[in-house]
């Protein structure tokens, strides 16, 4: 029986473990190896130690893409989280229309980022919906070419991602708020606390655990951000709307510098892992998985 159990376990674990090992873990190691080579995707990779990383350090375009990624993180903290949290708090004790609003707010989350990106590129186009709407409200002085000004394009490209993420963060906050017992809010109200006060002194502190999750999602999401930017501008003009992953892709499959692109992807994974681990350790003292 015991032997039987062992054999059974091995057989049942095998397909998932082997596939994951061969097509995820092994490629991660390959990525690290490729990052230390010169490789044009055709001839054999040539070992070059850390020269790719040294070039990265001096590559202004890389730092532009990192600065853009950081902007997305800043927008997570200043736009996505506040808006999502306020929406969830407003909706929390609404009886009529609760289901409708939740359905509608979450809707963008389920749609392909590529489709959302393309939709926004139509919206931004010169005679597209955005400029027409501005015209409709008599704001035609605000009309412009949203995708050619390097100062504006970054925000134009980030907007669809921010918009989709708000829906996701909103349901995460809503679920967490629903987990706080109703009496907690009620007793605060009886004590005469205004709903603004209740929000800051009860809801926000009790949401700290979920807040951490959302912050980590915001940071890793910014590092993974690809489809929206690719659909709208392909990172351009130049690299002014390229995020970390977009720049990696431009170097990899745009100019076939596979070694250099691997170095970029190694830094992306490094930032994601480092942030997640440090953040969790610092704020929750938990460093292992819950199992």
């Amino acid at each position: 029986m015991k032997q039987n159990r062992g054999l059974f376990s091995v057989l049942f674990l095998a397909p998932a473990s082997l596939l994951f090992l061969l097509f995820f873990i092994v490629p991660v190691f390959f990525s690290v190896y490729y990052s230390m080579t010169e490789w044009d995707a055709v001839s054999k990779p040539e070992f070059s130690a850390f020269s790719n990383f040294a070039s990265l350090w001096r590559d202004a375009d890389y730092w532009t893409s990192m600065r853009n990624t950081l902007w997305l993180v800043v927008m997570t903290l200043t736009i996505k989280i506040p808006v999502a949290l306020i929406l969830a708090y407003l909706l929390l004790r609404v009886k009529r229309g609760f289901k409708f609003f939740r359905t509608v707010y979450f809707l963008p989350v389920v749609i392909a980022p590529m489709a959302i990106g393309l939709m926004f590129s139509l919206i931004y186009s010169e005679s597209g919906m955005l400029n027409q709407t501005l015209d409709l409200f008599g704001l035609s002085f605000l009309q412009q070419n949203w995708l050619s000004d390097p100062d504006i394009v970054l925000f134009a490209v980030s907007a669809p991602q921010v918009w989709q993420n708000i829906g996701l963060f909103f349901v995460i906050f809503l679920a967490a708020l629903q987990g706080i017992p109703n009496e907690t809010f009620e007793s605060a109200e009886i004590d005469g606390a205004s709903s603004t006060r209740t929000f800051f002194s009860i809801a926000v502190p009790m949401l700290w655990d979920v807040m951490q999750v959302v912050i980590i999602l915001g940071v890793t999401g910014a590092l993974k951000m690809f489809d929206h930017a690719w659909a709208i501008t392909q990172g351009g003009p130049g690299v002014s709307s390229a995020f970390a992953s977009v720049y990696m892709f431009m170097k990899g499959f745009g100019s076939y510098e596979f070694g250099y692109a691997s170095a970029i992807s190694v830094t992306i994974a490094g930032y994601a892992l480092a942030f997640t681990i440090v953040f969790k350790k610092f704020f929750s003292g938990k460093d292992s998985l819950e199992y």
Binding site: V26, F226, F249
Partner: peptide, 11 residues
Amino acid sequence: MIPGQTILIPT
């Protein structure tokens, strides 16, 4: 924990 982009080129 590891972003999928990391394995794009090796894959």
